[in-house]
Simulated scan of single mutants.
Amino acid sequence: MDPVRYRILGTTQALRPDGTVVPVGGARLRALLTVLARRAGRTVPGRLLVEGGWGDDPPADATGALQALVGRLRRALGAEAIASAEGGYRLAAAADDVDLHRFERLAGEGLRALADGDPAKAAGVLDDALALWRGPALADLPDAGAEAARWETRHLDVRRARLTAALALGHAEQALPELAALCDAHPLDEPLQALRLRALHEAGRTAQALAAYEDVRRLLADRLGSDPGPQLRALHAQLLRPNEPERERRAPQAPTGAGGEGARPTVPGSVGAEGAGSTVPGSVGAE
């Protein structure tokens, strides 16, 4: 029998094998399920479950309150869904039954395919990963804070990689609307801006690409007091020599986000923040 699947990339949900949604009512109950799903298949200590459910205002009888909440969740999901373990509880699910962990697995596969020079495979796998997102990560966990931000950065890394694959496949024109929107939302992300300039050039809009470079150069000067990094400068030089024979293209590289060539120093609100794109399966949310 197919397992129950769990969604925590957006509002927390549980889905029966036939795809119907299991009603999980109440913010505290969804928060408890979110904490368990983050560590699917592993025991979560009771204190972490209490923190997830009650935050900084735990009940006087925290152990009894947690037991009651787990009981409610078992009635919703089935008694076998939540296993008791020494010191805590465990969601009886494999990592791939949780959208967040499945996303991370697919993201890794897609990025490796892109780095290996297979943009067609990368595009398919990254599309599957991105389709799992329905809203902000860990939306029902009020104190997710920095962890949720790390997953949002990872999401942007994967979107950037998918657009890199699109350009490698010759789909520059189709990629431009999403690139424009992302650059508007993340104007200090130089690798993303470089992708947009490349897409404009490859779509036959070199004049627009040059104008966009000037916009980025002024923005960086105004916001950071600095010039574009080497990646953007090299691309600008290429745009100024459109009639020169193009060197043989290298296999497309997976975008590196904050650590990529030309990335800016850490800036509040910038995608180039320290640690962006560094998420690996199992590392996010480990306490």
Rank of each mutant, 00 (worst) to 15 (best):
L179R: 01
A194P: 11
A194K: 01
V216M: 07
L197A: 03
A203W: 00
L197M: 13
D215L: 11
A203V: 08
L200S: 00
L219I: 08
G204M: 05
L192H: 05
A207P: 09
E202D: 14
A211L: 07
L195Q: 12
H201S: 15
L192T: 06
L197R: 10
E214S: 12
A212Q: 13
Q208W: 09
A199G: 05
H186W: 13
A180P: 10
L182Y: 00
V216Q: 06
E202C: 06
L192C: 06
L210R: 14
A211M: 09
L197Q: 04
P191I: 02
Y213N: 00
C183L: 06
D184V: 14
A211S: 13
A203T: 10
A199S: 01
L197K: 01
Q193I: 06
L197D: 09
A211V: 12
H186R: 11
R217I: 09
A180M: 11
H186F: 14
V216D: 00
A209C: 06
V216I: 11
A207E: 15
R217K: 10
D189A: 13
A199E: 03
L188I: 02
L210P: 09
L219V: 10
A194S: 14
A212C: 13
L197H: 06
E190I: 08
L179M: 01
A181I: 09
R218F: 04
R196W: 02
R198T: 12
A209Q: 02
A194N: 15
C183G: 14
D189I: 03
R217N: 13
C183S: 15
L200D: 00
A212F: 10
H186I: 10
C183K: 04
E214K: 11
P187K: 00
A180Y: 08
L210K: 11
Q193A: 15
T206F: 03
A181V: 07
L195F: 11
L179W: 03
A181S: 10
L197Y: 02
L200T: 02
R198L: 09
R205T: 11
E202M: 04
A209G: 14
V216R: 09
L179T: 02
G204I: 04
R205L: 13
L197F: 01
Y213D: 02
A185P: 00
A212H: 15
A209I: 05
L210C: 09
R218Q: 14
L219C: 11
D215Y: 05
E202P: 02
R218E: 08
E190P: 09
D215Q: 13
C183F: 01
H186G: 07
L188Y: 03
D184I: 14
L210I: 12
A221H: 14
L188W: 02
E214F: 07
P187E: 01
L200Q: 14
G204V: 09
Q193D: 01
Q208E: 15
R205K: 12
R217Q: 13
L188V: 05
E214I: 10
H201D: 15
P187V: 02
E190R: 06
R218A: 12
R205E: 10
L182S: 02
L195M: 04
